[in-house]
């Protein structure tokens, strides 16, 4: 921190737009202006928005892969250990480590591990469940799950200035701007 700053009294400024196109244009301008701590809230995924907000890649696929590999290995190891080590049953002299018959369960557990990892990983990275978030203070924010598109510049951004940022947001032609309290 270059200088001791008093914590801003608000969480950020929330601008409301009518269409995804208007939001995309606005997000582009905000990024050009140099703001980095911001987020957009939309009723459905808008293509290219995350990239404009500076979000390039997600670790969800890697987590899913690890979950799948773990599930598969654990499943195979379980079957091997049970069938060949801990509880060997000799059926007509057939091999104890009969790997072809272990494939179905290994496959199922790989899928299970990967699917659980994908969902739990997505939720964990998103920080959900999160019952409280400052944007929920704004009554109009309920429309973010209907037909409005919101852009929030957060006060933690180093460029954030309550007056200046508001003027800048106004220049982008939003429908409405609100202060988001903590």
């Amino acid at each position: 921190m270059p200088k001791a700053r008093t914590k801003s009294p608000i969480y950020g400024l929330l601008a409301e737009f009518d269409t995804p196109a208007a939001l995309l244009v606005a997000a582009g301008h905000v990024r050009e202006k140099g703001y980095r701590r911001m987020d957009a809230y939309t009723p459905f995924p808008v293509e290219g928005l995350a990239a404009l907000l500076g979000f390039r890649y997600t670790r969800v696929p890697l987590i899913t892969l690890i979950g799948g590999i773990f599930g598969g290995l654990a499943g195979y190891a379980l079957q091997y250990w049970i069938s060949a080590v801990n509880y060997p049953i000799n059926v007509g002299g057939r091999p104890l480590h009969s790997w072809p018959s272990f494939i179905p369960v290994t496959f199922e557990l790989s899928i299970l591990g990967a699917a659980l990892a994908a969902v739990l990983g997505m939720l964990a990275l998103n920080g959900l469940p999160m019952p409280y978030h400052p944007v929920f203070h704004i009554p109009r924010f309920a429309l973010a799950s209907r037909d409005r598109f919101f852009l929030c510049i957060e006060s933690s951004d180093s460029k954030f200035d309550r007056q200046e940022t508001r003027h800048f947001l106004e220049s982008l032609g939003p429908r409405d701007i609100s202060d988001v309290p903590y």
């Binding site: 987020d39 957009a40 809230y41 939309t42 009723p43 459905f44 995924p45 808008v46 928005l49 995350a50 907000l53 979000f55 997600t58 969800v60 696929p61 899913t64 799948g68 496959f107 199922e108 899928i111 990967a114 699917a115 994908a118 969902v119 990983g121 997505m122 939720l123 990275l125 998103n126 959900l128 469940p129 999160m130 019952p131 409280y132 978030h133 944007v135 929920f136 924010f141 973010a144 799950s145």
Partner: peptide, 28 residues
């Protein structure tokens, strides 16, 4: 809803996870 607020970053991870789930559910 677990506090879902339609954040663009959330949507991005959400779509990735949903697509991966679809890919996993297909062979399943």
């Amino acid at each position: 809803a677990m506090g879902w607020r339609g954040s663009a970053l959330h949507w991005h991870r959400y779509q990735t996870a949903y697509l991966l789930l679809a890919g996993l559910a297909t062979p399943l």
